[in-house]
């Protein structure tokens, strides 16, 4: 047998620091992407991850281009700069009611990709290995520095989300009535876009720009089919995303396939299984836990 088996994966995990770093980075990114993703999905902004990922692509192009003019930005810094700018542009377009959310994403998406392609063609390096690993991720090359950056960013995002968790819940339920509760909806939405941009950039290393949704959207979408309350949904989404990274990494090692793709497919596989399960179950499940409703006419009694 030429292929390594599952046990060899665990043995390798014990021996190779690069594999340990890959797993740790993957799990941390999965957690933060999923918990943020729940709010992204509830706001009907599921494509924002992809929009900002393409902005980030523009940033990578810019870093290659800028190097020719002795402005040295790492691709990661370039990506961060452009993704955060993309998030702010989306906020500006949406909050000023210039265009709808999905159109704003399309605009930022085109802008990022357009700039990226032009910058790269001007830089004259073609779509080299750097770009390829950026598009599809290269989790096995996570350095100690990368890991440090990922953990710090993830922790910062986690703290902000923990502080505003209840307010983001109110906004997700209904932005207008949240505003009348005195919640600064527009500022918090802008903050969420910035956090999403940062998450996209750190997720790039794990799954690449093209597959960010596999961690940010698919696990929350799966969790929303199972959980009845937001805290449950968030925890489930985090666990499902971590599972996807772990199993994806394992499959990638055992079957020698691209890690980013494996993570995405595992994530989708779980979504499909859960959807099938729900589809096959009897329809009245939604009311299973509800107590017998009193006749409506009895309501409002003093």
């Amino acid at each position: 047998m030429a292929d390594p088996n599952i046990f060899e994966f665990f043995a390798a995990l014990q021996h190779y620091p690069f594999l340990q770093r890959a797993l740790l980075a993957g799990v941390v990114v999965a957690a933060v992407a999923a918990v943020l993703g729940v709010f992204v999905v509830l706001r009907n902004m599921s494509m924002i991850g992809d929009g900002l990922a393409h902005s980030a692509f523009g940033g990578v192009g810019f870093s290659l281009f800028a190097a020719g003019y002795a402005i040295f930005l790492t691709p990661l810094q370039g990506a961060l700069l452009f993704a955060v700018s993309g998030g702010l542009i989306i906020s500006l377009l949406v909050e000023r009611r210039l265009v709808g959310g999905d159109t704003a994403l399309g605009i930022v998406f085109s802008l990022g990709l357009g700039l990226g392609v032009v910058f790269i063609s001007v830089a004259g390096k073609g779509l080299g290995v750097d770009i390829f690993s950026f598009l599809f991720g290269n989790i096995l090359t996570v350095s100690v520095d990368d890991l440090g950056l990922i953990v710090v960013m993830a922790a910062a995002i986690g703290v902000v989300l923990a502080v505003f968790y209840q307010r983001y819940t109110a906004i997700a339920f209904d932005p207008e009535s949240a505003q009348v509760l005195g919640i600064p909806v527009s500022a918090l939405n802008t903050l969420l876009n910035v956090l999403t941009a940062i998450t996209v950039v750190i997720a790039m290393k794990v799954v690449g720009v093209l597959l960010v949704s596999a961690l940010m959207i698919v696990p929350p979408a799966t969790a929303l089919q199972i959980g009845r309350r937001l805290p449950t949904v968030s925890v489930l989404a985090v666990l499902l995303a971590m599972l996807a990274v772990f199993v994806g990494l394992l499959c990638s090692y055992v079957f020698d396939v691209a890690t980013g793709g494996a993570v995405a497919l595992v994530s989708l596989g779980v979504f499909l299984a859960v959807s099938m399960g729900r589809w096959l179950r009897p329809r009245n499940e939604g009311h299973a836990h509800a107590p017998l409703a009193p006749p409506v006419s009895k309501a409002f009694q003093p």
């Binding site: 819940t169 997700a172 339920f173 209904d174 509760l181 005195g182 600064p184 929303l224 937001l230 449950t232």
Partner: peptide
């Protein structure tokens, strides 16, 4: 409301109390 919005009636009512909690 999205039919799958993950909150109970009580969860939604509790959110009203945020209006009495200042910024944080």
């Amino acid at each position: 409301v999205r039919h799958d919005f993950p909150a109970t009636a009580l969860d939604v009512v509790v959110l009203g109390r945020l209006s009495r909690k200042g910024r944080l």
